[in-house]
Design a protein around this nucleic acid. Structure first.
Length: 526
RNA sequence: CGCGGGGUAGAGAAAUCCGGCAUCUCGUUUGGCUCAUAACCAAAAGAUUGGAGGUUCAAAUCCUCCCCCCGCAACCA
């Protein structure tokens, strides 16, 4: 059935995780779980980027040992992944000297062998405030606009990577969809950027940047962020030893990234791979940022959303649902507690949760919690609707429109609720009397208390009742499978309460006896 | 002319590339239902698609001009 290797970007550990990072994990998780259901062997990698001057400085400020500092922050990111029930198989850290460092040095040598690394003097205007070189065009009256100071002229000799050499091939790969970039406007953006792509600096003098991977054969230099961080995608799966796993998994099927690091993933990374003789990733999915009440999330404004607090307040599955449903996958989205609560109430509590509850009650009251599933009772219209919904859902996921895929699922929920009202199953049979001392089915059977036609007149149609229930069950089982990538626990809970499971799939329903069981309400009203 | 994104019922979005009765969700109003978490269903009201002009049998969509909002500095995905 093939494999599916998906990655998130690795988080920079100079600050604790915020909700945007959670979103990226969730999107990757949805893709991983979706492909898992398709029967593919999935591998999901995430991790942390732990080198660089800023981190060294942050550790120093807190008076901590650098490794200890990154250990602590990285642990928070791992905790986040666990907390959100992320299905990652691995967690790579760039300070990992067993797996990551050797891989970085190996790819460095490969680039060198291809003649793509050269030393050059770089003379630039360095703004201390920015901790970065400024372009003359970014200055006003020779001063940095933001920091109101003249940048220093600094001359450094560094290693450079011949990015320019690969521009054309990368452009071709993007154009012919060998390396897809979604959404489409991001692809256009990259194609424009590629025209101006210049060679990039790949090292820093180790006197300035010690906290990183040493350049092989050059003690005076440290590998700069691109070659270090990007390599995680192959270091984690065994690039250094060229393991079986590496051969099986590479190239990645999807890299999930934020819009801010698109240029590095769509230009530098592919160029590195080409230079090292490795195939390009098949797709890059670019998500936007989360605003809060229409405002940019920022520490200065103080509106940063803490994902841990969110989960604590609303629970994992509602938060997963909200972020994946409300934030358009490839665009910026808006977060607000109001919207979160509205989504929760209308979609989860009143929509899906209530639907599950009413169907279970119907089955319990009139069929004593047992239904013998008959495929021939499936309504052709329902079957057709589910088929169409699935097509749209799959197309949306393939095009990185996860929020719309979820919209498809919930249109099915709405349909099912309407279907109940339309067919009024409670009118079709007389419910089994509720007697507190009669518990089991056999007891009820003996007492002649099983469901009967409501009357012998036209109104009583138990066959029709069974048909309506069958279709509702069919809808709910399908909804469970469709919702699994987004809300895995909810999906499994629903399946379980209908006496079914994920492993059983949807092909073998015919002639199965389903024993239903009411569990606690899925999403209590707020 | 710096680059990019955007302006569509009260709110949020879709349709825009490739012109064809302007769609969906929430909210509002009215009616229905009682299996269900006071939940659910149906119907209705509500938009001169930011403005002006043009092309066309037909424009939210194509062309021209104008107005307005948001990113493109940091923390940060």
């Amino acid at each position: 059935m093939g494999k599916f290797y998906v990655t998130t970007s690795i988080a920079y550990v100079n600050a604790p995780p915020h909700v945007g990072y959670a979103l990226e994990l969730l999107q990757a998780d949805a893709l991983a779980r979706y492909n898992f259901l398709l029967g593919k062997e999935t591998y999901f990698l995430t991790g942390t980027d732990e080198h660089g001057a800023k981190i060294a400085k942050a550790a120093e400020t807190e008076g901590k040992d650098k490794q200890k500092f990154v250990d602590e922050v990285a642990a928070k990111f791992q905790l986040l992944a666990d907390m959100f029930n992320i299905s990652n198989n691995d967690f790579i850290r760039t300070t990992d000297r067993q797996r990551h460092w050797p891989a970085v040095q190996k790819i460095w040598r490969k680039l060198e062998e291809s003649g793509d690394l050269y030393r050059a003097k770089y003379k630039g205007l360095y703004c201390v405030g920015h901790e970065a070189f400024m372009k003359p065009s970014e200055l006003k009256d020779g001063e940095c606009v933001l920091h109101k100071q003249k940048p220093e002229v600094i001359e450094e000799e560094n290693w450079f990577f011949k990015l320019g050499k690969y521009k054309k091939r990368i452009k071709e790969a993007i154009e012919n969809q060998e390396m897809k970039i979604l959404p489409e406007h991001r692809q256009k953006e990259v194609l424009n950027l590629l025209d101006d792509a210049e060679d990039v600096s790949f090292s820093r003098p180790s006197k300035d940047l010690k906290w990183g991977v040493p350049v092989p054969g050059d003690e005076t230099s440290t590998v700069y962020v691109w070659c270090d961080a990007l390599t995680n995608y192959i270091s984690a799966i065994g690039y250094f030893d060229e393991t079986e796993q590496f051969k099986k998994l590479w190239p990645a099927d999807a890299h999930l990234i934020g819009k801010d690091i698109l240029r590095f993933h769509a230009m530098i990374w592919p160029a590195m791979l080409l230079s090292a003789g490795l195939p390009l990733p098949k797709a890059i999915y670019v998500h936007g940022f989360i605003n809060v009440d229409g405002q940019k999330m920022s520490k200065t404004i103080g509106n940063v959303i803490d994902p841990f607090a969110l989960v604590e307040k609303y629970g994992i599955e509602p938060v997963r649902y909200f972020l994946l449903r409300e934030i358009p996958s490839g665009e910026d989205g808006d977060f607000s507690y109001k919207k979160l609560e509205e989504r929760y109430q209308s979609d989860l509590a009143n929509g899906l949760g209530n639907l599950v509850q009413r169907v279970l009650t119907l089955i319990e009251n009139s069929l004593l919690g047992e239904i013998n599933y008959r495929e021939n009772l499936e309504d052709k219209k329902v079957v057709e609707l589910i088929k169409k919904t699935k097509e749209s859902y799959e197309k949306n996921i393939d095009n990185f429109r996860l929020h719309e895929a979820l919209g498809d699922v919930f249109s099915l929920v709405n349909f099912a609720n309407g279907y109940v009202n339309q067919h009024k199953p409670w009118e079709l049979v007389v419910p089994v009397p509720k007697l507190p001392f009669v518990e089991t089915k056999s007891q009820k059977d003996k007492m002649g208390m099983l469901a009967k036609p409501a009357s012998t007149s036209a109104a009583g149609r138990p066959d029709h009742f069974l048909e309506v229930i069958t279709n509702l069950v069919f809808l709910l089982l399908n909804i469970s499978f469709l919702i699994y990538p987004f809300m895995p626990e909810t999906a499994e809970k629903i399946l379980k309460s209908f006496g079914w499971s994920l492993e059983k799939g949807l092909d073998k329903l015919d002639r199965q006896k389903l024993v239903t069981k009411k569990e606690e309400v899925l999403f209590p009203r707020l």
